[in-house]
């Protein structure tokens, strides 16, 4: 747990903001953005978990003794994957929103009330 309070604080702040926006937002895209913000915050959190103060990139080298202070590479790899997945998710979400706009003629979430009975 080498990341500073700043990293943790800001990433948690981003996550909370994301959720808040997603819950309070009325516009579909706003909700999507909230979710995305949540994802970003999460990714940042993961990165900061693996962060080592003053560490270097985890690259294989001929001189391993120089790089004593290496950040954990796995979170970074995970986050890379997570980012890609997040993008895919966003793409799918935005595609759905586009279609919704086409069919409903509005992006107001309060108007999406077909499914009740």
């Amino acid at each position: 747990m080498n990341g500073g309070l700043l990293f943790y604080g800001s990433s948690v702040f981003l996550m909370v903001m994301g959720i808040f926006i997603a819950i309070t937002g009325k516009h579909l895209i706003k909700i999507l953005l909230g979710i995305d913000l949540f994802d970003v915050g999460l990714n940042l959190l993961i990165i900061s978990f693996g962060y080592v103060n003053g560490g270097t990139a985890p690259i294989f080298s001929k001189y391993p003794h120089i790089f004593k202070n290496v950040v954990d590479p796995v979170p970074q790899a995970l986050v890379l994957t997570a980012i890609v997945i997040g993008v895919a998710e966003m793409a799918m979400g935005l595609a759905i929103v586009m279609k919704i706009k086409e069919k409903f003629g509005t992006c107001n979430i309060a108007k999406l009330k077909e499914l009740k009975w």
Binding site: I19, I23, I31, I109, A110, K113, K116
Partner: peptide
């Protein structure tokens, strides 16, 4: 089960 997406999200939280 009659809310919209925001309500459901709120349930989760």
């Amino acid at each position: 089960y009659m809310g919209d997406a925001r309500v459901y999200l709120f349930y989760v939280i």
